[in-house]
Design a protein around this nucleic acid. Structure first.
Lengths: 180, 180
DNA sequence: GTCTATATGATGATAGAC
DNA sequence: GTCTATCATCATATAGAC
């Protein structure tokens, strides 16, 4: 039987790229690698994507859109109970854990796509909702431990039931905030 | 006056490499870049280092040695009060924050130098000292938040007095362990 | 939409003169 | 110890046939 109906080559390229990026890293994966595994030639990729960066961007775009929507939503809904805020941040990270893993593994990807600044901005906005503006050093540290730890758990711990993982991570993050 | 007495070219290569690696990442820095900034040619580098990887290794070696000594010391000294353990782990990370930043920025460096497995092993040994063997999911999560958060603070937060940073980080990490 | 063939440039590494 | 000159290999990207 035929592989697929026409029109899905673009999606198959994206999936193959994502697989390879996850296996060996973004920088370590060439267009040749992607084309070979998919069973096409390099120029075929260029029919579907203007450049290597265009392909990479198409993989990261959904996450960026989602993060931006999340940040806007939070700004509108404040104030939010800390546990709720931490939980929704876990969910966000968990939803995009595949792409985030790529970005963590090769942070230059973030730089090249001009995402580093936006990430810092997002984190800053979240931190402000957690410990207010004008945070002390202790506040900054607790924010870093809580939000960093939350991301780590959502992204790095695999093969565990999500609900339990989420509950445990939110609890640890909340405790790290040191509320009485 | 002459730049330096003879015999320090090797060290100057290392310093230049470290600077460039920190500025733009390991993978994004070529031997050409290093040679150019130092004002020598590429073959000159090869007189002092057998290969690019040899140069990179020479930069990472002190950290590896120190981590291994630390792990051995802990195994011998157990049991250790949690705060003390967390504090010494902060110190370790802080001592080598420059090199750790490089490794975090491009995790493939760890893989190539076969350091990833050792890092996981070190972390595992530390975790065992914190929450025992046979940890629950909650224990695993709390370990990840505490130790990950400590490293993040030691490595990523700059321009802050170390003593205060250390105290705040240890406190947040300890709280994340959820001890009553 | 996919191919063959190729342009162009960067990389790590080496040979051999001085 | 450092140089000039060069190599093989890889990368992204394009031109044009089918």
């Amino acid at each position: 039987m035929p592989r697929q109906r026409t029109g899905d080559t673009r999606a198959r390229i994206q999936q193959t790229a994502l697989d390879l990026f996850a296996e060996r890293g973004v920088r370590q994966t060439s267009l040749r690698d992607i084309a070979e595994r998919l069973g096409v030639t390099k120029p075929a990729l260029y029919y579907h994507f203007a450049s290597r960066e265009d392909l990479l961007n198409s993989l990261v775009e959904p996450m960026v859109k989602d993060f931006e929507a999340y940040a806007a939503e939070l700004r509108a809904a404040a104030p939010i109970p800390p546990r709720e805020l931490l939980g929704s941040y876990f969910d966000l990270g968990y939803r995009h854990r595949t792409v985030i893993r790529l970005a963590i593994r090769d942070l230059s990807v973030l730089q090249e796509l001009n995402l580093a600044d936006r990430f810092i901005e997002w984190r800053g906005a979240l931190g402000e909702l957690l410990v207010g503006s004008n945070p002390s050093l202790s506040d900054v540290v607790r924010c870093m431990v809580a939000l960093g730890g939350l991301s780590d758990c959502a992204v790095m711990i695999d093969h565990e039931p999500v609900a339990e993982l989420r509950e445990a991570a939110v609890e640890a993050a909340y405790d790290s905030l040191g509320r009485p």
